[in-house]
């Protein structure tokens, strides 16, 4: 039974290994820490946002505001640093506080107004994107010594690959996500609410506090993702990162988390992100394929995973029914 729950995750692992093997077979150069380092750096902002999305989906919810919050944070930081001459670290702190409060407010609306998460975060998406536009419509570049310093920070891996600060930050966020999911009460509440909200409430799970916490966490990680994206691009632009929330949802589902909530692993999402990054890298190496192939392959994978999950749920129901009559 345990294994049937882990099955989607194992399937993700198998797909990752197969995909990597195919890549390396065609382009032996892809087996290098250089490629791995770039992959982590290029997908750092997506990975960080996807960790927040994992918690949201585990609890049976959804957060559509992620991409907009990343863009908003980016614009806010640019304005504070470039126009107001604020130190980037202070700007980061303000941006994170704002995005966390924004997520928490959405969580409160979802819980207390009993509005579906999908609607509330859709409204949040429009709001965040709109505010980004109101602040500035054009892309605002950041030229700050701190940025250039940070961008040069990396750890040299054996084989010449560079683990950049933001790539490393993503790994740290994933590690922290795993700890929160499996080694804290909050984590167990997230799974409980995703399993059955009403039962969780009757069992004494603090549903209100946890729901607000989940969306605040997602807001915080979207903000952090915005910080990383700002460092990655050295700019803030209100039209950036459109649809990143959908890439994050795709990563979560490909990572083996049930869209209905209650079952899944943060570690799975890591591989969901890396598989998407791998496909992009393959396309870059190939050089002739359109980058839209990433979307097509991700679409196919999503279908395959949703079908696999349905199948497992059906098989699970069948065996549960057998137990009942036995």
């Amino acid at each position: 039974m345990m294994s049937s729950r882990l099955l989607p995750f194992l399937a993700t692992l198998v797909i990752f290994v197969l995909a990597y093997a195919v890549c390396v077979f065609q382009f032996p150069n892809m087996l290098s820490t250089r490629v791995a380092g770039n992959l982590l750096t290029d997908n750092a902002f997506l990975g960080i946002a996807a960790v927040g999305m994992t918690f949201v989906i585990l609890s049976g919810g959804i957060d559509l505001s992620v991409g907009a919050v990343i863009a908003f944070t980016g614009v806010l930081i640019s304005v504070l640093v470039s126009w107001h001459g604020m130190h980037p670290l202070l700007a980061f702190a303000i941006a994170l506080a704002v995005s966390t409060a924004f997520g928490g407010a959405m969580g409160a609306a979802i819980h207390y107004l009993e509005v579906p998460a999908f609607i509330v975060t859709l409204a949040g998406m429009f709001l965040a994107r709109g505010m980004a536009f109101v602040i500035a419509t054009d892309s605002i570049p950041i030229n700050h010594a701190f940025y250039s310093a940070v961008q040069k920070m990396y750890v040299l891996m054996p084989g010449g690959g560079r683990l950049t600060l933001i790539g490393g930050l993503m790994l740290v966020v994933f590690a922290a996500g795993i700890v929160i999911a499996h080694y804290t009460r909050f984590g167990s509440y997230v799974y409980a609410i995703g399993g059955n909200r009403q039962s969780a409430e009757l069992m004494g799970v603090p549903v209100a506090r946890t729901t607000i916490g989940i969306y605040a966490l997602s807001g915080f990680l979207s903000g952090l993702s915005g910080v990383v994206f700002s460092l990655y691009t050295s700019a803030g632009y209100s039209l950036a990162t459109v649809g990143v929330e959908l890439d994050a949802i795709a990563a979560v589902v490909i990572g083996g988390t049930l869209l209905t909530g209650g079952v899944g692993l943060v570690a799975g999402t890591f591989f969901g992100v890396v598989i998407q990054g791998l496909i992009q890298t393959y396309i870059v190496f190939d050089g002739t394929l359109s980058s839209w192939w990433t979307k097509i392959v991700v679409g196919i994978l999503l279908f395959a995973f949703i079908a696999l999950q349905r199948l497992l749920v059906l098989v699970g129901d069948r065996s549960a029914a057998n137990r009942k009559t036995a």
Partner: peptide
């Protein structure tokens, strides 16, 4: 309680 018991996914 009568109807809802526990969480099957935990």
């Amino acid at each position: 309680y009568q109807e809802v018991n526990l969480l099957p996914n935990l």
